[in-house]
Computed example of a mutant assay.
Amino acid sequence: MDDHIAPRRVVILGGGFAGLFAVRALRRAPVAVTLVDRNAHHLFQPLLYQCASGILSSGQITQPLRAVLRRHGNVRCLLATATGVDVYARVVHAERADGTSVSLPYDELIVGIGVKQSYFGHNEFAQHAPGMKTLDDALAVRRKIYCAFEMAESVTERRAVVKVGRFHASGVLGVADLAVHPHRVPHRLPEPVRGTAQLGGGLRLRLPT
């Protein structure tokens, strides 16, 4: 008589903070965990603004999920995007990086796929205040900042205005980083004033020499 009992199958959607906390809580449980995320890395979101301002590189705020969970013997990581959940059949449908489909049967499902930025009913703000939730968002803001510094470097006026963003807390923090660490800006801006960052609502922050 076979007395082997198969472990319960747990599928976790999302490799963010919620997903990792769930994995660690199940570390010693008699379960088989499948962690599904469309990225191969865990992103430390609180430092996105420092990546956007160029203070930190993208590699300093991300870490491969497999490296984070290498000591969790009951976990496997799957690089895929969840496309649907059949709650009656208890199956997650996902699409892998190569475009193939995969079905993941589960006994327990944990969903921690994160959130999107909210404009509180004013979606027209989106074109002026881009989101800061993903690494792509941060790199897009960085490109705009570096483009602004590139243009400022080419002007002859003593005062260069760098427009960073409007109505966005991360934009303010990013500019504060640049003010504290002006030596990290790889551009030769007009002297003696390094530049002025326009934050929104008429507020400007002067970057020191």
Rank of each mutant, 00 (worst) to 15 (best):
D86R: 09
R158T: 10
D177K: 12
M1R: 14
A82Q: 07
G84C: 13
F149Y: 15
V161C: 02
Y49E: 05
V180I: 13
P105E: 01
A80Q: 06
S57D: 15
E157M: 05
P182S: 11
I110H: 02
R8H: 12
V75Y: 05
V193A: 09
R166E: 12
V68W: 05
R70C: 07
V111L: 08
V172N: 01
H93Y: 11
Q63A: 14
A25L: 07
R206H: 09
T196N: 01
V193M: 06
P186N: 02
F120C: 10
F21I: 14
A80H: 04
A32P: 03
G165N: 13
T83I: 10
Q63I: 08
T100H: 08
P7T: 13
R142E: 05
S53H: 05
F120D: 15
H168Y: 00
R194G: 12
L13K: 03
Y106M: 07
L35W: 06
R70E: 13
A67L: 15
A197T: 09
G114H: 14
L203I: 11
D177A: 15
V175N: 00
F120N: 15
H4Q: 10
G19A: 12
A129L: 05
F125H: 11
V193R: 06
V155T: 14
L205A: 13
F17M: 08
I110A: 03
I61Q: 08
L207H: 07
P7H: 09
L178I: 02
V33W: 04
V87K: 01
A169W: 07
R194V: 04
C51D: 01
A32H: 14
E191K: 13
L47C: 03
L135Y: 13
P30W: 05
G19K: 09
R71F: 10
L178P: 08
G112M: 12
I110P: 00
A18H: 01
A25W: 03
V92H: 05
R76L: 02
D2K: 13
P190K: 06
L203K: 00
M132V: 08
P190Y: 04
R142S: 11
L56W: 01
S53D: 12
H4P: 00
A160V: 11
L178S: 03
L203E: 05
F17E: 06
R76K: 12
R8G: 14
A140C: 02
D136M: 01
Q45A: 12
V68K: 04
R188S: 12
G114E: 11
S154M: 15
G99L: 13
R143F: 01
G131K: 07
R66S: 04
V75S: 01
L139N: 04
Q60W: 00
K133F: 11
F149V: 04
K144E: 12
I5P: 00
A97K: 06
G99N: 08
D3H: 12
L139V: 03
A148I: 02
R27F: 01
G195V: 14
K144W: 05
H168S: 15
R28Y: 10
D98W: 10
Q60C: 05
L43K: 08
A18F: 11
S57T: 14
E191F: 10
L43G: 03
A6W: 05
E108R: 09
